[in-house]
């Protein structure tokens, strides 16, 4: 079984700092009225944070293609539930 690069301690702290920074950005953006875009921005930031956790803390970066496949396939199904639900709620 191949194991992804565990990375250096420096990388972990850099990712941790990035996660904290993005959390602060999420809070600050919530005070700016962007209408519907508020949700979009919050979800985008959350996605970036989740990706950082998966790539570095869960060692996805450097994993083999099978593990990448298992990591990416659920994103398709997430898109599916969003698409199916929005087809109803946006067009009702």
């Amino acid at each position: 079984m191949s194991h992804g690069s565990t990375g250096s301690r420096r990388t972990y702290f850099a990712v941790f700092a990035a996660l904290l920074l993005l959390t602060v950005v999420t809070v600050l953006v919530s005070y700016v009225d962007l209408g519907l875009l508020n949700v979009v921005v919050a979800l985008l930031i959350a996605s970036v944070k989740a990706s950082l956790v998966a790539l570095f803390f869960m060692h996805l970066k450097g994993e083999n293609r099978l593990v990448w496949g298992f990591a990416l396939v659920p994103i398709f199904f997430l898109a599916l539930i969003l698409l199916g639900t929005l087809t109803d709620t946006m067009l009702r």
Partner: peptide
């Protein structure tokens, strides 16, 4: 009460 388009697609 789902949207008609969603009904048709499903």
């Amino acid at each position: 009460g789902m949207s008609p388009l969603a009904n048709a697609i499903f």
